[in-house]
Simulated scan of single mutants.
Amino acid sequence: MTGTLISLISIFIGILAANLMGYFKHKYSFGFTGNTLVGVFGSIFLVKGFGRLGFDPWSIMDSGHFHSSLFILNCIMSALGGALGLVVIKLIYNKMNT
């Protein structure tokens, strides 16, 4: 795997997590398109923000070796980013509409 492929997988996991969160928790849903957008940006922001701790895509592929534990941590953080992004954006949306 390359760093770019790992980044795309992370984004896809963030999209999946945000859409699943919106499906199971209807009060946080923005519809499929809104959940997808929030999932993309939520996973990117969380992985970019905390990726400096050592689980960014290029650290996972350090000198040609694949570190599976870092990849799993990256996937978990992407899923959290998508789900938490949806909650945060819904809270902001509700604050702006009251």
Rank of each mutant, 00 (worst) to 15 (best):
I15L: 11
F12S: 15
G31V: 11
F12H: 11
N35V: 12
L16F: 07
G64C: 06
L70N: 13
I15E: 07
L46E: 01
V88M: 15
Y28Q: 03
S10E: 10
I72C: 03
T33K: 00
G34A: 09
G22A: 09
I44D: 05
C75V: 10
S29Q: 02
I11P: 09
C75K: 05
S10I: 09
V87P: 07
F66D: 08
M21Y: 11
M96C: 12
S7V: 14
N74P: 13
L86V: 10
M77T: 14
G51C: 07
T4Q: 09
L8N: 09
G51F: 00
L91G: 08
G54N: 06
I11A: 04
F12W: 04
S69V: 05
C75W: 09
G3K: 06
T4C: 04
I92N: 00
T36Q: 02
A79W: 07
I44C: 03
G31T: 13
K90F: 13
F30P: 02
P57S: 07
D62A: 08
S63F: 08
L46N: 03
L53N: 05
M21H: 06
K25A: 05
N97L: 12
S7M: 12
W58D: 04
I60R: 09
G54Y: 06
T33Y: 01
V38E: 01
I44P: 02
N97Q: 11
S59N: 15
L84G: 10
L80Y: 10
L70T: 04
G39E: 02
G3Q: 05
F55I: 06
C75T: 08
V88I: 15
S29G: 03
L20M: 05
T2Q: 02
S10T: 14
I6S: 01
I76N: 03
K27N: 07
T98K: 05
L73D: 08
L53K: 01
Y23I: 12
G51H: 00
A79E: 05
K25D: 14
M61T: 10
F66L: 13
T36W: 04
K90E: 06
V87C: 02
L37V: 15
G14S: 15
M96F: 09
G31F: 15
T2C: 02
K48D: 10
L16T: 14
G14E: 15
I60H: 11
S78P: 12
I6W: 14
H67K: 13
L37T: 12
L20S: 00
L91P: 04
G14I: 15
I15N: 04
Y23S: 11
I13Y: 02
A18R: 00
T98R: 05
T98N: 04
V47I: 08
K27G: 01
T98Y: 03
L84D: 01
G3L: 12
F41Q: 09
A18E: 08
I15G: 02
F55T: 01
H65K: 09
M61W: 05
V87A: 06
L20W: 00
G3Y: 11
S43Q: 02
I13S: 05
S68T: 13
V38D: 01
V47Q: 03
V38L: 00
A83N: 02
V40L: 10
A79P: 10
G85Y: 11
K90C: 08
G64Y: 01
S7A: 14
